[in-house]
């Protein structure tokens, strides 16, 4: 990625994250501008981080780190604390992934399974992801394995058309694993580069529905033992601490290779990804920052944190 291009992305991200920045960053900035470092600053910082959905544990740890840094480095100016916080956040988000996605098979398509709770934007994200691959002139097949929600297949069809990707579908109510199997068979036959599988939204606490996902994963393995190569959990940026539980249970059931953070252009701060990274080491792979087809971006910790803080 060229230097110029990279800055372009930062600028764009910045404008799209402006809502989040207004709330969170403004608060942090204003409190850090107060001058001297005193106990009150740490308390207010705690409040700001919690309001960004970073959670009590991550917040406590961050504040504790700041406190130590302030002491060790003999910081006196609150302004300095700001760069320390930025550093800490970037280093937290840059931690190596706990689960590395499997390397791509030279022959078959790279299979991505999209999962998540209801209403996080799985279907929309698939449309955007397919579009992203299509931009690279890759051959993309989408599998409509959300056979449960009314009109989910129709919705995916519209997205597939928009991104001019192929679609494999069955009837509503069909076995999602069967759809996934057929889609992978088709993707192999048609020599596709990517297969993206949509699944029905499900609360992570529903054991039977988690079993259904495991089955999808199992049958994919019958055609390609290395599939799925990527299991992405789609997460709504407005989600609070429950996202930790989602990450935990989806990981236990399937093993997640990454997170797609959607709806980041709202007032939500998306701070929960910091907590998720902190607790499970699951990296954010993409962020959704708008409603149009090309509003899905690869996630860069430094850009994310900078865009969150910079004016």
């Amino acid at each position: 990625m060229g230097e110029k291009n990279r800055f372009g992305i930062i600028a764009r991200l910045r404008s799209q994250l402006s809502k989040a920045r207004e709330g969170f960053a403004a608060k942090v900035r204003s409190l850090l501008r107060r001058g001297k470092i005193d106990e009150g600053i740490f308390e207010e910082l705690e409040a700001a981080l919690i309001q960004a959905d970073m959670g009590v544990n991550t917040t406590s740890e961050l504040v504790e780190k700041m406190r130590n840094r302030a002491k060790d480095d003999k910081l006196t100016d609150a302004e300095q604390l700001y760069s320390v916080l930025e550093e800490e956040l970037i280093s937290l988000l840059s931690r190596p992934a706990g689960v590395e996605p499997k390397p791509v098979q030279p022959v078959g398509p790279r299979v991505t399974l999209m999962i998540g709770v209801n209403g996080v934007g799985k279907t929309t994200t698939i449309g955007k992801l397919a579009n992203m691959h299509r931009q690279d002139e890759k051959k993309v097949l989408i599998a409509a394995a959300d056979t449960f929600r009314a009109a989910a297949i129709e919705q995916l069809e519209i997205w597939a058309n928009r991104s001019s990707a192929d679609l494999v579908k069955h009837k509503s109510g069909a076995d999602p694993a069967a759809v996934a199997y057929d889609a992978l068979a088709a993707a192999i036959a048609r020599k596709c580069d990517y297969l993206i599988i949509d699944t029905a939204g499900r609360l992570h606490t529903k054991t039977n529905l988690m079993e259904e996902l495991k089955k999808i994963k199992r049958v994919l393995g019958k055609l390609d033992p290395t599939a799925p190569h990527e299991i992405l959990m789609v997460l709504d940026a407005t989600t609070g601490q429950n996202a930790l539980s989602q990450a935990r249970l989806f990981t236990e059931a399937l093993g997640i290779t990454g997170i797609v953070l959607t709806k980041l252009d709202g007032t939500a701060k998306g701070g929960i990804v910091v907590a998720i990274q902190q607790e499970f080491g699951i990296p954010v792979k993409y962020i959704g920052v708008g409603e149009s087809l090309d509003d899905l971006k690869p996630f860069h910790p430094d850009e994310f944190v900078k865009a969150l803080f910079e004016d």
Partner: peptide, 12 residues
């Protein structure tokens, strides 16, 4: 409103 919403629930 989604019960899983975090701190943003108030803003919305």
């Amino acid at each position: 409103a989604d019960a899983m919403t975090g701190q943003d629930a108030v803003t919305v």
